[in-house]
């Protein structure tokens, strides 16, 4: 267990800057997820922590020790790759024991640690097999086993579930989380999938274009996104956002008046955001026309049209209304998010 600290970390590839001063402190035993769209620099940041990429500028510290000049193998970290990176010519047992073998540990210690990890991961029947003889999920577990065996200070995961099918992904998500609760090893986990981030993280760092847009606990990000990007990145289906103007304590937009708790200047240009599940149909309110109905069983997603904007509405249970019908939406001021039209920053209600 260890702390991890990034201080003003920079990185360029040739002339392209990919990280613009990342600062992030990770507590002992914490599970932090770096999430963001593809190409935003998550992997680069993780690989710099792993020592696979030179640190362009700034510092990275593990357990208070600056590791900029420390070789990967001396950082006491373990990494799980998206492609698993299992050694094809070694059995599962040898794959998991490889790092200990390189450290010249005694064979019985290696055997014991491998057996232990295999037990945790239900890999005992497969120890003599080669990676090519395993299913995707089993390979994934071997990759994790390889990390566990080392008992490192920090676990690093780079999109470890992206190569699995949807169902297995959900199962492995739970497994990794359970594993973390059991081992309590500090973990940095990279993914582009915000659901993975929301379900697994103690804290999430949302990244875009080499910057951290917001750092916080999952529900904090969900409830109080710091800016438009985070607002639309976190949550599925995505938050509805449209242009509006503050008039008389509410927002005038799409030909209707939308409630808000923000007390802004009269005539201020804003972006109005409201999550689909906060747009329950009501007996009266803002009129909308249903375009598409997508029943999902427990809930129903409606695509509706207000003026010439398309919004998503999520209702619990089933919907009796069909396409073409009119419904009314009654959003609540407490669930409305307002962002500055120019900067995209959140306007915090008092």
């Amino acid at each position: 267990m260890a702390t991890v600290a990034f201080r003003e970390v920079h990185k360029s590839f040739g002339a392209t800057k990919v990280l613009h001063g990342i600062s992030l402190d990770i507590a002992e035993g914490e599970f932090v997820v770096l999430v963001g769209p593809s190409g935003c620099g998550k992997s680069t940041l993780l690989r710099m922590l792993a020592g696979l990429e030179d640190i362009g500028g700034g510092q990275i510290a593990i357990d208070g020790r600056v590791v900029n000049d420390v070789d990967s193998k001396d950082r006491d970290i373990a990494m799980v790759f998206q492609s698993y990176a299992l050694y094809p010519h070694m059995t599962v047992r040898d794959n998991m024991g490889f790092s200990l073998k390189l450290r010249k540990e005694k064979q019985n210690l290696i055997d014991q640690r491998v057996a232990n990890a295999a037990k945790i991961l239900n890999l005992e029947p497969y120890l003599a097999r080669y990676p090519r003889e395993l299913s995707g999920g089993q390979r994934q577990r071997v990759a994790m086993g390889r990390a566990i065996v080392r008992d490192p200070k920090v676990f690093l995961f780079d999109e470890p579930l992206s190569n699995l099918d949807a169902k297995l992904r959900v199962a492995m998500r739970a497994e990794i989380k359970a594993l973390h609760q059991r081992l309590k090893t500090t973990t940095v986990y990279v993914t582009h999938d915000q659901i993975e981030a929301m379900t697994m993280a103690d804290r999430i760092a949302v990244m875009r274009d080499g910057r951290i847009e917001q750092l916080g606990e999952p529900l904090e990000l969900y409830d109080r996104p710091a800016n438009l990007f985070v607002a639309q990145f976190i949550g599925s289906p995505a938050m509805n956002v449209f242009d509006g103007t503050i008039r008389n304590g509410s927002v005038e937009a799409l030909g209707s008046r939308w409630p808000t708790a923000v007390r802004g200047a009269e005539g201020q240009q804003v972006k109005y955001g409201v999550r689909p599940e906060h747009l329950e149909p009501a007996a009266s309110g803002i009129a909308a026309q249903i375009i598409v109905v997508e029943p999902m069983g427990a809930e129903t997603e409606l695509v509706v049209k207000i003026a010439d904007a398309t919004l998503t509405v999520m209702t619990r249970g089933r919907s009796s209304a069909g396409p073409g019908e009119r419904i009314f939406l009654a959003p609540q001021a407490s669930h409305a998010h307002l962002f500055d039209a120019a900067t995209g920053l959140r306007i915090q209600p008092p």
Binding site: R47, K73, I77, M79, S83, A85, S99, L102
Partner: peptide, 21 residues
């Protein structure tokens, strides 16, 4: 795959070990 080398590096392999193992 390039990740094999990276995995080996993290596992603590020296260039020579990477080469022959």
């Amino acid at each position: 795959p390039w990740e094999l080398d990276e995995a080996a590096r993290i596992d603590g392999a020296t260039p020579l070990q990477l080469f022959h193992l």
